[in-house]
Design a protein around this nucleic acid. Structure first.
Lengths: 332, 332
DNA sequence: CTGTTAGCGCGTTCAG
DNA sequence: CTGAACGCGCTAACAG
């Protein structure tokens, strides 16, 4: 009651050696069946639990997986975490969640903490401030497998899971153009982060192919917030030439945009068409005039976990795999 | 590179005893400054990290906190986790997140896993199926402090953090009545869970005080989903007497209700007034006709963490504290 | 100031 | 079939 029961306690009580107890508890047939059962019964009765620390100290197992995200609060990330947690649980892993709050400094600290706690593997999506992968490379030194998803760093050779960002945005631009839009703007994130760069490249590529004269793209300084959406919309519509369509990488920001458009009496979709990466089902339901690009969150999460699991089991021999999943446009 | 560097490795290399290295690394003044610095320099250069498992095995530290929630995907819970994660990080704790998916069986498994991994402390909100606290009581046996929040189990004596559920719902009913509503319905969760029972009690108490003839309350079987909201709304409006106001404990369900009301052409708020516990800022923004009860999520998370931290530090001598925070109605 | 020894809980030899 | 001894990495107590 007052102290955790150990193998030695059992051995003392049952007058057998603790190594016998150890074997019995792991169903080693080398222990006589009778003794085995007696030991197991006693153990169960007294609520014996193997001490994971002792196991891990011996190097035989690690059972904690780390998930690093910029922000747990975002539906996209909380969904990913949710799926990973469920999968990991089935395999006997615990999931520790780390949140960088979009700060590189915090991200570095988080990686430190992960190494300190010798964790089995890491699934990560980087902060907006992250440009190089130096701190992630440290994991390799400690033999901790790493998988990146969504916001990946290109310079590091690890398995990665992404959406087809380039293609989907290019497709959206063309679709909008077919529907008559000629001044399409793209609100995205820092170019240094591949996911945003890819999307923006897809945007520019399509604009160019279509030969449209107007381009406008920008990225908020302080992360994707409703406030940033409002400000951005205000800025865009203070310009002389105003867009007739906006593609936005964040549904949270899109909220702010919608809000601001109401303020200045611009009707959606008559005067402007809106498309956003829409992970929030609530938002999808409530904004019948806004088109959504739906990312296959479950698939991304499953693939990320699977890749990490393989790396932990050393099935993948260092050959980094990139998996791309298709996002789908729901056009409204 | 190939293996994690240990204190012994350093001691071998630097021709000192490993205990000296241990002391030096912890800035023990008993080690000559010169030696100390030499050791620390070497350690840093070679990327030495203390092995947490060894520390934990010795019983000196535990640095993992578990947070148990029904569902990470819900804004309320992901918010709580976010705040706790940030706070815990500052104190050197890692946060492991466990998700019960509203299943009692899974919850039991989760607690097993927590005990197995001897974790420093637990912050929990129970599943919808949870009626007794037997599995939680096991934590006590292993001396793992527990704090419950939001969905608490009453029968167990641990620190708890809740909103003023009874009062806030009673207040809402009265407010609605002042605005002319006479047939107010309450959609809640299982009565076995205190948070829902308290809200429903507040509802009934106010109805009674006001002497209103109409009462209607129900709870979805399968948890709070958009689908459940649609079904519930459909059911309510197939009855002869229809409500002129609905209070809903879940904003997700409220989404389904709004949707269904549109289907059957009932106008909000002219024909019916809607109030929901609204944790989703996006939803708040988008539904100007729906009133929200805002829970002080940050405060709840902070208080929960603080209580747990105190329990871990043994500042609280087993005296269980209940903290109640006020939720606020934003009336629209 | 530094080295020696012991032990945290466990699994794995290696002997019997 | 079972016991004895050892070591994982670290710190604390004791001894110089």
């Amino acid at each position: 009651m007052t102290k955790r029961i150990t193998i030695k306690d059992i051995s003392r009580e049952l007058k057998v050696h603790h190594s016998t107890v150890s074997r019995a508890l792991r169903d080693d047939p080398k222990v006589r069946k009778e003794t085995r059962e007696r030991i197991k019964r006693y153990a169960k009765k007294h609520g014996y639990r193997t001490n994971m620390n002792a196991l891990q100290l011996r190097g035989s197992v690690k059972n904690v997986i780390a998930v690093i995200v910029p922000n747990i609060n975002h539906i996209f990330f909380s969904n990913i975490i949710s799926v990973i947690t469920n999968l990991a649980y089935k395999d006997g892993f615990i999931v520790s969640v780390f949140q960088t709050n979009e700060s590189l400094e915090l991200e570095k600290g988080v990686l430190n903490s992960i190494i300190l706690n010798n964790i089995a593997g890491v699934i990560a999506s980087v902060s907006m401030e992250t440009t190089n992968a130096k701190h992630f490379r440290a994991l390799k030194k400690y033999r901790i497998p790493l998988v990146m998803f969504d916001r990946v760093v290109e310079k590091i050779k690890v398995p990665k899971v992404e959406s087809n960002n380039f293609e989907v945005v290019a497709g959206v631009v063309k679709k909008l153009n077919r529907d008559g839009c000629r001044r399409i703007a793209h609100i995205t994130g820092p170019k240094k982060i591949s996911v945003f760069r890819n999307r923006n490249n897809g945007y520019h590529q399509a604009i160019e192919e279509l030969g449209l004269p107007y381009t406008y793209s920008c990225s908020p300084k302080k992360g994707f917030t409703i406030e940033a959406g409002k400000e951005t919309a205000a800025k865009i519509f203070s310009n002389k030439i105003k867009p007739d369509a906006i593609i936005c990488d964040s549904d949270i920001m899109m909220m702010g945009i919608i809000f601001q458009l109401k303020e200045i009496n611009i009707r959606v979709p008559e005067e402007i068409k809106l498309v956003s990466f829409g992970d929030n089902p609530v938002l999808n339901l409530l904004t019948p005039n806004v088109s959504s690009i739906i990312q296959p969150m479950t698939e991304i999460a499953e693939a990320s976990y699977r890749l990490l699991k393989n790396a932990i089991d050393e099935k993948e021999n260092t050959r980094p795999i990139n998996q791309i999943f298709n996002a789908n446009l729901i056009y409204r």
